[in-house]
């Protein structure tokens, strides 16, 4: 058994916490786990790609090889597009459609692609998956910082590797108790948003 996950997002979206929740759950389930992050100045709004590799045998590289990821979670559409080639042809993506414009796009040095352009470019790659507006769903619950939890909930709908409840409990063990009620709501919302 070998399972490769990549999470693409922007610094501050909780990408690394989400990857740690899954990595720790996999370790508790007895798997071998290797992870790393490819990040620019993450704290300053840079691009962040988390790699989580889970297997019941030896794992050599901390980086998921290009075209080998079983699942890509895109916390932001441009970052999903940037790393869509990480996904295997048989892989599945879940992509949050809410854009985070780049500094250079705000300055009109670059053009931030339209949502339609990004979705079309991703669909063009011949891989399949789901789009959802996790940011809006998180705002509806009351806090945009719940975006990563929505994405975690959604993840549990397409991967049978780890029990959803184990992932939720691991998440709750890593965040302050006052956030637990909203975290549960967001997790369940993420699960509902994916119709398998």
């Amino acid at each position: 058994m070998k399972f490769d996950l990549v999470i693409a997002g922007v610094g501050g979206q909780g990408n690394i916490l989400a990857s740690q929740v899954i990595a720790k759950c996999a370790m508790d389930a007895g798997y071998n786990v290797v992870n790393t992050e490819t990040k620019g100045a993450a704290q300053r709004g840079g691009s962040v790609l988390s790699h989580v590799r889970i297997a019941d045998s030896e794992i050599y590289s901390p980086l998921v090889p290009q075209g080998q990821a079983d699942i890509l979670l895109g916390f932001e559409p441009l970052e999903a597009l940037r790393y869509i080639n990480m996904l295997s042809k048989q892989g599945t993506y879940i992509i949050n459609t809410a854009p985070v414009p780049t500094i250079l796009a705000n300055l009109k040095v670059d053009e931030y692609p339209s949502q339609e352009q990004m979705i079309a470019a991703i669909k063009d790659k011949g891989v399949s998956g789901y789009f959802l507006n996790a940011t809006q769903a998180a705002k509806d619950i009351g806090n945009v910082l719940l975006t990563n939890v929505i994405m975690l909930g959604a993840f549990t709908r397409i991967s049978k590797l780890l029990p959803p409840d184990a992932i939720l409990q691991m998440l709750l063990s890593m965040v302050k108790e006052k956030f637990h009620a909203d975290d549960k709501k967001a997790f369940e919302c993420g699960q509902r948003l994916i119709q398998v």
């Binding site: 300053r44 250079l104 692609p113």
Partner: peptide
């Protein structure tokens, strides 16, 4: 693909 540059 439009880059995310570093700033303060």
């Amino acid at each position: 693909i439009p880059a995310r540059t570093r700033t303060q």
